[in-house]
Amino acid sequence: MEVRENIRAFIGQHLIVFNDDVSFTDEDNIFELGFVNSLFAMKLLNYVEHTFDIVLENEDIDINNFSSVNNIERLIAGKLSSTAGNE
């Protein structure tokens, strides 16, 4: 599964709005929309680290990096490319 689809699926599994018509774009701030509960930021952090096998430092752990699908994808791509560059 593509990174983007993987992220969307994970977010979709954790929505706390239960109207079938609810949707979110890759740009939407899922936290500001109230689509997830207070535990989600921590769950998302764990998911990103373990699914994509990257280590996020305190500087990376900024809610803006996790607020939308696009931002999460950008964070992962940045970490993976810096890891590859170090090898």
Partner: peptide, 14 residues
């Protein structure tokens, strides 16, 4: 501990 502003969202929850 951690980044400023991350106390509730990340550290308390963890």
């Amino acid at each position: 501990l951690g980044k400023t502003g991350n106390g509730f969202r990340y550290i308390v929850n963890t």
